[in-house]
């Protein structure tokens, strides 16, 4: 026993190395998958406030472009106001609000890694919860995976484990969108049935099946469709509508009915 201890002590350098590497690898694998990242994310106010101080200094550089973007979006939204429409149908339409949008500013963002994340300056204090969808002014941007009091971490669409349930706008066909290209502009549409032929600039939208994104949010447009013979399912390249490189303002989507829908689904399973 004593010799064992002496042996261990003599090799403490190697042993310590092995232990620390095992701990590191454990940490890596634990947060690798979507669900792992969801369970073990360490979003804290410390890192958040560092990034937001820094982006507070640098955001002035892009003020002009940001203003243009926001003005464009305002114009789009005004077009959607009921006052912009001539009411010819006098029937009363009852509407319940389904989604609430929480505006947020991106304080840190990566686009060129194998797995990309963003951090935004809204947290649990503002009603952000895990697994809420995040959209830019144009279309989908990511999913919230970690929340602290004032900040939240978002798994960007540019992440290996990101898979969004989508629909081809023209035909309504269900497909999935994943990211496997290393290119921050392009993603892949998978699970396209063989009878469907996609063309350049066909629009892909969210299906609304996942309860994370509302239906009909634009994901991107088709770049090319590589159809192989004798294959049941084909894949296509999609160009994201959101420019992740310059993303500054996003909206976190709070699906108000999600708890109700979730409990209904759980009832069905049990």
């Amino acid at each position: 026993m004593r010799t064992l201890f002496i042996l261990l002590w003599k090799n403490q350098f190697f042993l310590l190395f092995v232990i620390l590497e095992v701990v590191s690898v454990f940490l890596v694998t634990r947060s690798y998958s979507y669900h792992g990242a969801l369970a073990h994310n360490t979003t804290t106010n410390v890192s958040g406030s560092l990034f937001s101080t820094y982006s507070g200094i640098t955001e002035y550089l892009n003020l002009k472009e940001d203003n243009v973007l926001l003005a464009e979006e305002n114009a789009r939204l005004r077009n959607g106001l009921s006052s912009s429409f001539l009411l010819t149908d006098t029937q009363y339409v009852y509407r319940d609000s389904l989604y609430k949008f929480i505006p947020a500013k991106v304080v840190s963002n990566s686009v060129s890694r194998s797995n990309n994340f963003m951090m935004v300056n809204k947290g649990s204090k503002h009603g952000v919860k895990k697994e809420m969808g995040v959209v830019s002014s144009f279309g989908t941007a990511g999913v919230v995976i970690g929340v602290s009091q004032n900040y939240s971490t978002i798994m960007s669409m540019l992440h290996q484990n990101m898979k969004i349930s989508a629909r081809i706008k023209n035909s309504g066909q269900l497909v999935s969108v994943v990211w496997e290209s290393n290119d921050n502009l392009l993603g892949s549409v998978i699970d396209i049935p063989s009878h469907i032929k996609l063309f350049y600039s066909d629009t892909i939208i969210t299906s609304g099946n996942s309860l994370i994104f509302p239906e009909g949010i634009i994901i991107g447009t088709i770049e090319s469709h590589n159809k192989e013979k004798n294959k049941q399912l084909s894949r296509a390249t999609i160009k994201y509508i959101t420019d992740f490189g310059t993303l500054k303002h996003v909206y976190i989507i709070n699906n108000i009915m999600k708890a109700e829908q979730d409990s209904l689904l759980n009832k069905m399973v049990n």
Binding site: L20, E21, V23, S24, V25, F26, L27, V28, R30, S31, H40, N41, T42, T43, T44, S47, L50, F51, S110, R113, N115, F117, M119, G146, T153
Partner: peptide, 13 residues
């Protein structure tokens, strides 16, 4: 570094 980049363990290893 991992703590700030949200990539637990990668830089540590």
């Amino acid at each position: 570094i991992d703590y700030f980049t949200g990539t637990m363990g990668i830089n540590a290893s």
